[in-house]
Design a protein around this nucleic acid. Structure first.
Length: 913
RNA sequence: GGGUCCGUGGUCUAGUUGGUUAUGACGCGGCCUUUACAAGGCCGAGGUCGGUGGUUCGAAUCCGCCCGGACCCA
């Protein structure tokens, strides 16, 4: 921080009173800069000798945001939830590891670069394009970092990573080699999704649905043979298709097994019009009988179904379309045409030769590349896969070993695994990813892996580890051009964070290694692993979480996380997902122009973890009011108390002990809620105790008690409670609590801190005992008197001459009288001297129900009609049913005819004369 | 199209194994300037718990079907 005027260390001395309003616009940025400059949130690994207690560390595997644009509300929400955890555990445990990373090796970052620089990756040499990606990402990352810091996310900024960085590339490539050595990876020729415009393979998540209008064409196929092996010369059947240009790629025709009308075709052969190839006719359940003629052609490849059929029925491969959507030699006369030209030409020719029976308008959904909107094609290429299907049960067990918040999210993980049908394709044909560290023998095709010690490598520019193929001795080796799927790397974040690496061992063990690479995998920070928490959104349970479990489990034989916290999505005020196309996106910058960060954090704490959460300006306003209330209450506490907290007196007065005992209960309850990631409940309970009990009741009492001068018991209690409130609010409202902690010089009373409330110890219950029943009744009396004044149009400080309380408020008489300005307060512990009459019976159905079962109706009716007697402890209904004392309560209405006005509370009766 | 989750006053939300009058906040109406706070205090209105059928003495809660929404996968 350059401006020393703002330095927190040069605030006015603590004996100067808090004045004025809270001004977050000044104070929040001041502390944000201070925390970063002072490394307030640095992970403390100092006591990290062997045997150090891993239980005192709390490690978080922060989700590295994809570098694809700017901070959005989802980030704000998600990071803030993580920050509640980090801040709570930093205070409750010894040290918190809260790192931050950027996922900048994926196609999203490539696209950002192309968009930002208005270039196409095809126009650049790979290295050159990668360089541009790094530059663009660096700019965005810098901006993003500032944005995250301005949200007061308590990340340790000395522990950051980028997934494209060499260290991470090394981890990613080590993972590939380790899994290969374990026999869990293989390379196979298989169809991939291809964008013919961008000329790249794309992943499934990069395609989206689009509704398009097109022509549905009924085309006549000649039947060569039917199921009996014979067919009339002129026998035909009809195929309906939107893509006649795929006719040259047609390899079979499918019939649904329930399609009785066409069963006679199954097992037969058909001839494709214009192109003449003869293809088998096969039965398969995946045929949609409702569409077109109910018969469908399978081409390699037109859609996902074609791929499934191709694999399931071991069909021929006829590739009629190339990388740029140009017809291949398979298309014969149409070779060289673009698919759209070919479609028209083929329709014309079908029509001319009488094969086109009908052509009609048709609306359907197609898969397009989300970036360019062009319909995807399917190409067959060599890809690397990680085996998963053989270990589904182990991965299911791993999921059950983790504790899920909320619990219900485990089912998404389970269903995903149960439904898995494919191994994981980890290779991508992109420019700016992490290279797959392998070369292939030109002669026998043997893959040659890089040496672990050499990683990271780029086969395109680095030399292979051997000069000839170890299998066949051939000299020419070809580098792999593909890179890893971005999830193949981001699924390693726990290992990246824990410093997992291959260490070449100089010791004797080296000889044991079969490949001559003596060494082992070790972690620099083993105490972090398994991580205490994986926080993330529910939308990527099947990607990031599942893949992380798979990879880490295979590398370490351990489940990588103790707990999983799943957050929902941020919706707009109308509960709809925010999206650019709907135009309902609210950027965080817009929110933070109008509200303090602490108010936004208050909003973020407002829902159960896992639920989708609408942005609600009213909640931010409520947060703002809480800040103001906290500030004003702090001012009053400051005014009422001396600069130094007095030592605890031997004897605390009843009302002080009551407050501290209630505070104990709140501390314990809020702590339990934080442990359970129940932020909303922690927030609401804390707010309500602070506002309703501390401010409305206790502060009003304390004000009166201290009006005539000092009272050590009350001063001690006020300052003890206030300190505790600041700590309890600190995870939610880090700025205002830090400002108050600093301004009131509370650090002076705290041992072993650097002055920040955020590094103090989380409060524990002080073990105060008090007459909670009397206290609660006393507070009821106070609020009854407040109500009395309000209802009679009296100011709250109006004097009351004489009040009678019928109820147990022992020890609180003076507090009630002082706070409510009562001259004479008489307390009677017996029943009030007023007439009562039985007005009804309240049954406890949780007891009556199981005991009387179907007679409950008759009992209800008896009570309703007054057909009952109270016989000592027993209630007899309709001369038939005897209910014990625990079954019912007598409801009485009181009639007061004396002077003054009577008010009833839950456990007292108050008469104002 | 399939799977998962969700549906509680105008809005957001609590509601442990079914059990007395369904929680709180925001908003709304009214009253009250109390030497921290009118961005406060108090009071009030507002809900057949998405619909429907069932199980049960009793259902927001359990089951079936329908409607609506979100996410994931086709």
């Amino acid at each position: 921080m350059s401006d020393t005027q703002d330095s927190p260390t040069e605030e006015p001395p603590a004996d100067e009173q808090l004045t004025g309003e809270y001004d977050p616009a000044d104070i929040e940025p001041k502390w944000q800069a201070h925390w970063v400059a002072e490394d307030t949130y640095a992970y403390d690994a100092s006591d990290d000798e062997p045997g150090a207690d891993a239980d005192t560390r709390f490690s978080i595997d922060t989700p590295p945001p994809t570098v694809s644009g700017n901070l959005h509300m989802g980030h704000l929400y998600q990071f803030t939830l993580q920050d509640f955890v980090a801040r709570y555990h930093r205070m409750a445990d010894d040290s918190v590891y809260f790192p931050f990373g950027y996922d900048d090796n994926g196609i999203a970052s490539e696209r950002l670069t192309e968009r930002e620089l208005d270039i196409r990756h095809q126009d650049y040499e790979r290295r050159e394009f990668q360089k541009k990606c790094r530059e663009v990402c660096a700019t965005y990352e810098e901006e993003f970092t500032e944005d995250v810091q301005s949200l007061a996310i308590s990340v340790d900024w000395s522990n950051t990573y980028k997934t494209i960085a060499p260290e991470v590339q090394r981890v990613s490539q080590l993972s590939f080699l380790d899994l290969y050595e374990q026999g869990r990876e293989y390379r196979q020729r298989a169809p991939t999704i291809w964008c013919p415009d961008c000329e790249t393979a794309i992943s499934q998540v990069e395609q989206e649905d689009e509704d398009k209008s097109t022509k549905f064409n009924d085309i006549a196929f000649d039947l060569v043979e039917d199921s009996s092996g014979e067919a009339d010369d002129d026998a035909t059947f009809t195929i309906s298709t939107t893509r006649p240009e795929l006719l040259p790629a047609c390899v079979s025709v499918f019939v649904h097994p329930d399609d009785d009308a066409n069963q006679h075709l199954v097992g037969g052969t058909a001839r494709v019009p214009l192109f003449g190839q003869e293809v088998p006719i096969i039965a398969d359940e995946r045929v949609d009988m409702e569409t077109g003629s109910g018969l469908v052609m399978c081409c390699t490849f037109g859609d996902q179904n074609d791929i499934e059929w191709y694999q399931a029925h071991d069909l021929d491969l006829r590739l009629a379309i190339d990388e740029s959507a140009t017809m291949t030699d398979v298309a014969g006369d149409y070779q060289g045409m673009h698919t759209t030209e070919a479609r028209e030409a083929i329709i014309d020719d079908l029509d001319a030769e009488g094969y086109l029976l009908e052509s009609r308008d048709h609306d359907h959904t197609v898969q397009v590349h989300e970036r360019c909107g062009i319909e995807v094609e399917y190409l067959v290429t060599e890809q690397w896969y990680i085996k998963m299907l053989d270990k589904k049960d182990e991965y299911l067990d791993a999921g059950r070993e983790m504790e899920w918040f909320p619990e219900k999210m485990l089912s998404r993980y389970q269903h995903w695994i149960e439904g898995l049908e494919w191994d994981w394709c980890i290779s991508r044909q992109r420019d700016s990813g992490i290279p797959i560290p392998v070369w292939y023998c030109d002669d026998c095709g043997e893959p040659i892996m890089a040496e672990k010690a050499d990683l990271p490598v780029d086969p395109l520019s680095d030399e292979p580890p051997v000069s000839s193929c170890p299998e066949c001795g051939h000299d020419d080796l070809t580098p792999e051009e593909d890179v890893f799927d971005t999830w193949a790397t981001s699924s390693l974040t726990p290992l990246v964070n824990a410093g997992w690496d291959w260490h070449t061992d100089e010791s004797a063990d080296a000889a044991d290694s079969a490949d001559g690479e003596g060494g082992e995998f070790r972690m620099d920070n083993p105490e972090l692993y398994p991580f205490d928490l994986r926080p993330q959104g529910h939308d990527i349970i099947s990607f990031w979480l599942f893949h992380t479990v798979v990879k880490c489990y295979e590398h370490t034989d351990e489940v990588p996380f103790e707990n999983v916290m799943i957050n929902g999505m941020v919706l707009d005020e109308n509960r709809e997902a925010m999206s650019k196309s709907k135009g309902n996106v609210i950027p965080p910058s817009e929110v933070l122009e109008n509200f303090p960060v602490d108010a936004a954090r208050y909003w973020a704490a407002g829902t159960s973890i896992g639920d989708d959460f609408p942005y609600k300006e009213g909640d931010l306003e409520a947060g703002e009011r809480l800040l103001q209330k906290l500030w004003n209450a702090s001012r009053l506490v400051d005014q009422l108390t001396p600069a130094q907290r007095p030592t605890e007196p031997d004897e605390l007065s009843s009302v002080d002990r009551w407050l501290l005992a209630e505070l104990d209960a709140t501390v314990e309850s809020v702590t339990a809620k934080f442990e359970d990631y129940a932020f909303s409940k922690a927030r609401n309970e804390l707010r309500s105790f602070f506002w309703n009990s501390f401010c409305d009741d206790y502060l009003e009492i304390a004000k009166q008690r201290l009006s005539d001068g000092g009272d050590r018991s009350t001063e001690f209690t006020l300052l003890t409670a206030h300190r505790t409130f600041l700590k309890l609010f600190a995870p939610f409202l880090p700025h205002i609590t830090e400002e108050l902690w600093d301004r009131l010089d509370y650090a002076a009373g705290e041992s072993g801190t650097d002055g920040s409330v955020h590094t103090t110890d989380w409060p524990v219950a002080g073990g105060y005992e008090a007459d909670l029943a009397a206290g609660e009744t006393a507070m009821e009396v106070v609020s009854a008197l407040r109500r009395h004044k309000t209802e009679n149009g009296l100011p709250l400080n109006a004097d009351l001459d004489h009040v009678e309380v019928y109820g147990y408020i022992s020890g609180f008489e003076d507090a009630v009288a002082e706070a409510m300005h009562v001259e004479t307060l008489d307390v009677y512990e017996d029943a009030p001297d007023i007439s009562t009459e039985v007005s009804g019976i309240d049954l406890d159905y949780s007891i009556v129900g199981p005991e009387f079962g179907s007679d409950v109706g008759a009992i209800d009716a008896g009570i309703e009609s007054g057909d009952y007697e109270i016989d000592g402890e027993t209630l007899v209904v309709a001369d038939e049913f005897e209910l014990g004392a625990d079954c019912f309560e007598i409801e009485e209405s009181r009639i007061y005819s004396g002077d003054g006005e009577m008010t009833e509370t839950e456990s007292a009766v108050v008469v104002v004369r």
